[in-house]
Amino acid sequence: MSWQIRIEHSTGYRYASPVLSSYNEVRIIPQTADAQLTLEATVRTEPAATTYRYWDYWGTQVTAFDLHTPHTELVVTGRSIVQTATAPVRPTDTPTWAQLASDPVADEFVEYLRPSASTGDDPALVEAARELAARHSPSEFIPAVGDWVRERLTYRPGTTGVHTAAVEAWHQGEGVCQDFAHLALVLMRAAGMPARYVSGYQHPSASAAVGETVAGQSHAWVEGWIGEWWGFDPTNAVPAGEQHVVVARGRDYNDVPPMRGVYSGGASTSLGVTVNVTRLA
């Protein structure tokens, strides 16, 4: 069954001294692709700015804006209504490991097979990936990687940052959804499976009441290629389904940051992120 979800995402900064100009790009508009349909989406800024939208290399809709009036606070709010779809059944008639290792696959998905900035290799992780792959078919492998990651990472906000690499989080033994996703990507890629990072939102409750607004969160999970892309949420050990709203896909976090920009002025501090989600249907 598909859901309709309303998302209100707001993120902000405060500056130690007035900012004279700033240039920003936000990636918070949900995608319309596969079974997901974005019905409405707006991005507003305070102070107000004219926004410019484009689709980047990864197929993400980017909202860019610049500010030239001195300001000490910046708040960006995105509102959207999205129709999500039930998790597709995990395909079983999938390529074998040998087929995944073939040249055409290696060429087509080269970006999703090589280590990236946040998903660097580590011999021990490569070894673990090999072991898991030996015991599972590619299709079973994805949830198995999720289990492996959850056994080694404790979910604990504030222990890592957005630029923490998978290996660091693994050594630390804790992290947030982003670290779970990055670590899963390292293993999937090490085993020779094309794998990508997904950023978006998650409705926290599988039995959400229609019309009730609850606190949600920015979320991250992964997709592995097994003849088709199949999404899995390693943090929650569930396939990506109607509770998951896809905003962007890439090699890792750095390809899909919700907000990135430069400014000239005093040091900035984050005002934090709030996400409210409402199931509408």
Partner: peptide, 10 residues
């Protein structure tokens, strides 16, 4: 002279 700083990630 403008020097640019990155927004700290949220």
């Amino acid at each position: 002279p403008r020097s640019w700083a990155m927004e700290v990630p949220a």
